[in-house]
Design a protein around this nucleic acid. Structure first.
Length: 258
DNA sequence: ATGGCAATGTTTCATTGA
């Protein structure tokens, strides 16, 4: 099974690219973030024509998450948001596919470490970590995938000195990321030997992508029960190339059959 | 000290993202 996460930065703008990518890679499950669409405008028909069903939770302008599943794979027990954490922002959606609980997240950006948005980011992460412990108890085979807006350690940062203490790299955010792992998950990317300087996001400005000045902030975390089935974890840098790319590239894991 | 690029709606600028 091939499972992907991709922050598309507007599904409306990125739909042609997404459809082309689906045709080329034929993933089984796709987690999307920053769809930026009301549910009434979600492109159900175009995705169905491409062979994908979807569950989604969106809003206009900001945020918005979705899970796609290749035809023949049901999206069971969909739920959005986090129990007990009131949030207007559409950042979490989950469904069970082929016996695996898939939790798609768009972690708040945080803006800067001294902002109210940063405090919200840390509150949000605490609530999600709490929810995660219960979810893993119910569903030992679980994947949490999405845009975490955290570079877990210095290997995930093109210039750790420049980014030290900044939002996306600060120690409280990294601790929040480790709290997700402590709930019973592992970073699939680090299950394997990886080349240096692999990132998932590059600023649109300053030729950051051609210079590979990026961060690895998009992650696929797998539960300890699922980790032995993981056979690869990569990032498709090619998807960041060309006209009108998202600023994020997709992360991909392959899971062997149970 | 600041913008830089992209998407969106509040649209010919302001806000947000990371």
């Amino acid at each position: 099974m091939k499972l992907v996460t991709w922050n598309v930065n507007s599904l409306n703008v990125r739909l042609p690219r997404l459809l082309a990518w689906l045709g080329e890679h034929a993933p089984d499950v796709v987690c999307l973030q920053e769809t930026k669409l009301d549910d009434s405008r979600f492109p159900v028909d175009a995705l169905a024509a491409a062979g994908y069903a979807a569950v989604y939770s969106g809003q206009k302008t900001y945020n918005g998450v979705a899970i796609l599943a290749r035809e023949g794979l049901a999206l069971d027990e969909p739920e959005h948001g986090v129990d007990g954490f009131d949030d207007e922002q559409k950042r979490v959606i989950a469904a069970t596919v082929a016996g695996i609980r898939v939790v798609c997240v768009y972690v708040p950006n945080g803006q800067s470490v001294d902002s109210e948005k940063y405090a919200y980011k840390l509150r949000w992460c605490r609530a999600v970590a709490q929810h995660l412990r219960e979810a893993i108890e119910r569903h030992p085979k679980l994947v949490m995938a999405g845009d975490f807006n955290v570079a877990p350690d210095d290997r995930d940062v093109h210039d750790p000195r420049m980014w030290e203490g900044q939002v996306l790299c600060s120690e409280p955010e990294r601790a929040a990321f480790r709290a997700f792992l402590a709930a019973g998950l592992v970073d699939s990317f680090r299950l394997f030997d990886q080349p240096p300087n692999v990132y998932s996001w590059w600023d649109y400005r300053q030729l950051a992508f051609p210079k590979n000045l990026g961060l690895r902030i998009d992650h696929i975390l797998v539960s300890e029960a699922l980790a032995p089935r993981c056979t690869s974890s990569t990032i498709d840098r090619n998807a960041r190339k060309g006209e009108k790319p998202s600023d994020h590239a997709p992360a991909i894991v392959e899971l062997a059959p149970a």
